[in-house]
Write a protein that binds this DNA or RNA. Sequence first.
DNA 1: ATTATTTGACCTCT
DNA 2: AGAGGTCAAATAAT
Length: 215
Amino acid sequence: MRANSGSTATRVEKRWTAEDGFIWRKYGQKEITHSKHPRLYFRCSYKHDIGCPATRQVQQSDDDLSLYVITYFGDHTCCQGDGAVAAEEEEDVKMQPFVINFGSATASSTSGSPWQNSDDGDGRSEISRSPQALCLPEGGEADGLRLKVTKVEATSFDSQPAGPAAAELSSSPDVSCASPAWDPLSSCLEWDQFVESSFDFVSGFIDFDDFDLYQ
DNA sequence: ATTATTTGACCTCT
DNA sequence: AGAGGTCAAATAAT
């Protein structure tokens, strides 16, 4: 449905959904056909305050139970994540067709429900501790769903064997970066696989020169 | 008392 | 008619 509304979508696969720098409020849950797990619907907590239209959907992967597929819709007008970073990112996105953010994984919280933004523990958490710069502005005017970013994060260190494709949409191969000591520099092969077999479905939006730069 | 979550109902689209 | 997305009353948590 959103595909026809011309909205942008940012798809993220995480092993931990807790922190993305924004405050989300759950507003719905739905069983999805052919999916074992329900899809959870969140909207920005500032929706009513300042009309922030950002929403996200979270769904546990059927194939890799530790993987959560998070899809972001809309832009954070509240920019709660981190004002400075978000503004900076906004300019970048305006200049480029897409942005892949390799921001540091938040492996800070070690317990609690993955659906919650606040961490528990000693309660010294701050909302905006680890912004992921996902406050992306609206992109172009292309019709249909624009999948702007596909990011795979490994924020736990449980050395999971990489599962099969996480979800039908992603056709994500074995791109798990969940090795205990993942070294970006030594994982070129994985990235090559990632590029070859996973980005084909979004290749229309990707400038591979830019991608090489990020790589 | 206030705020957040749950969950069935309702709406829109295919 | 069925599926997916959102609303809102009831409920739970703080």
